[in-house]
Amino acid sequence: MIAYLIAVGIIALIYMLLTIGLNLQYGYTGLINFGVVAFFAIGAYTSALLTLGGWPLVPAFVVAIIVAAIVAYPIGLLSLRLSDDYLAVVTLGFSEVVRLAIQQERWLTHGVQGLPGIPRMFLSLGIGDYAELATLAVLVLCNLAAIGLMLHLVRSPYGRLIQAIRDDEVAVEAIGKDPRRLKVQVFMLGSGLAGLAGAFYAHFITYLSPDQFLPLVTFYVWIAMIIGGTGRTTGAVAGSLILMVFLEGSRFARDWIPSVSEVQMASVRLALVGLALILFTIYRPQGMMGSRR
């Protein structure tokens, strides 16, 4: 049971990193990024390919963050030219292009055959079952660091500017600050977090293939953020935990109601996620933790 909970916890914390990154982009600056999964995928493949090529884990993780952030740069520039809805679709399309590229460039990524045998974290320490506990601990630390970074940003003069952009871009410009640079930086920062999440994912699942990076992942992250409450650090935490309870809890719900078949349960699970989204947006728009938007 404990090992299962640890596994669920690891996935929840990976989603939490993604949600914190998106929260930074949308919750604070109003950037509508529907391409979260692209940066997640880039981080995952970068770290996986480097470690399979013999790199140690730590530098591979760092490079994964950097590559995801660098790829975000041109998209961030683009976001300056486009209004919200256009940006949403462009980022969504971008994530599909990334997935297609992973699928097609077989010399690098093995395409649809996927990358098996990605090294697990802490395996070399020889601590057996504790390796996953250690992974969980590192993820908790990373999430805390991400939250800390975010709070620091929000409270700094820089962060006030970021929020000011969201509320009134023209006013920011009027006081002589360049909101454009800030926006791009925030976009890169959030994408770097997604890259880090991807690296953790790669070394936990140990097998990567392009079909793990469908837009559905992006939607799940949005769901976590909306349910938790946008623009709130605690919102990202609560949202990703609630999402996991929904996705995993239904397994146990079925063990209790045996008359429902797996096929029906799969439908019921998706229906519940859908229903939760509908009801949350109608009756609790501020999310679980209250919203700043």
Binding site: L270, G274, L275
Partner: peptide, 18 residues
């Protein structure tokens, strides 16, 4: 509304497959 519409999409499809 966009997020709610994702919810509607999930809900409609799952009712169908059910």
């Amino acid at each position: 509304s966009l997020v709610a519409s994702i919810g509607v999409a999930f809900f409609a499809r799952s009712m169908l497959t059910l």
